[in-house]
Amino acid sequence: MKSSLIILSFFAAGILFSMTNILPEWLLNKNLSSYALYLLMLIVGVGVGSDRAIVGIVRQMNVRIILVPLVVVLGSLGGAGLLSYFIYQISVQEAMAVGAGFGYYSLSAVLIAGLKGQELGVVALLANIIREVITLVMAPFLVRFFGKLAIIVSGGATAMDTTLPVVVKFSGKEMAVVAIFSGIVLSLLVPVLVPFILSFA
């Protein structure tokens, strides 16, 4: 939760600073954001490639445990895509890209803002923050109505870190492994799926 606040405060600071008009003009250059995004993707890649735990996780996969993140992918893309019919400014593909953030709002928001524009970037930021907050706040109800997997699938990519404590508390300690596995797989999918979906938009 603390890291979420830090991340958000950088966004808020950006808005506040730009309103005071004390920032130099070159900070607004769109190329700067693009280069920063390329750098971020390079770093994310290095992180993924150098992580031996990820190789171990891929080896441990079996059909049944892989169904958990798969359910989140299908449910998030399908659900967001379906509701996009009520939002005439947002196409099905754009809605699916927002859904493909899986709660990983920092990375998905900057990716979508860079590839599709600030407006959809802001929507992605808010939508994925809402996803995390609802998971944290509604955790006990989610378990009661949707079963033991509920918090893990609603937390999405955050099930491995920020929402893991509520998984352990309300679903049980034995679900922690499933939560971490699903969270890691979904976090890895964000930088792949979001650009892929947006290439059809």
Partner: peptide
């Protein structure tokens, strides 16, 4: 407006995940 759009989309993503998660259970 963007806030409402975000809320709707997150409801869709959450609802879809929870529904399929329930089926899986």
């Amino acid at each position: 407006t963007l806030g409402w759009q975000a809320f709707l989309l997150s409801m869709g993503a959450l609802g879809g995940s929870l529904f399929l998660g329930k089926l899986l259970m």
